[in-house]
Amino acid sequence: MKIKIIPLILLTVGLVFSCKKETKKESNVNSEKKEITKDSITTEKKYGDLKVLNFEELKPYLTKEDNKTHVVNFWATWCKPCVEELPAFEKIHRENKANNVEVLLVSLDFPNEIESHLIPFIKNNGLEPEVIMLDDPDQNKWINGVDKSWSGAIPATIIYNKNKRTFFERSFTYDELTQELQQFIN
């Protein structure tokens, strides 16, 4: 029983922490709104285990040095070609677990549409790969941080492991994605 409580506490602390961070960023927008989000963990709970990170916090996910091949897809619910290619990413996620492949979906949805668009989308589509939301307004800085060749158009994808890294500013079909992935897992 005790063991079960610990992660719960950690989760709560984590939620409060991330909640504070979010309000910090919007500090000069609306102080009234700030009070509401700060106090109510209930609002945060609706996010489930969705992480909302700035670029510095996201960076470790783009530079893991483990034995896995990571497929990181930048998308948003408002981006039609992104939504169209999601099934391909889900499929390679399902099919390549044994190959040590991990898919991460980095959402660039708008923070005020998390509850109205992003969360329902994740639920309705039963998205299996982990979804992290990137909320960092200084795009001119972090787009180059993702890849110098990226213009900022989405969808965009990084495939990387310890030995190799490729960035793609394009859409993928399942076959195209599998083909690129083969170069990493062989």
């Binding site: 981006c79 070609p81 795009q139 001119n140 900022g152 158009a153 989405i154």
Partner: peptide, 8 residues
């Protein structure tokens, strides 16, 4: 400069 946008 760069920004996020919709692909053409």
């Amino acid at each position: 400069t760069k920004a996020i946008g919709c692909s053409i």
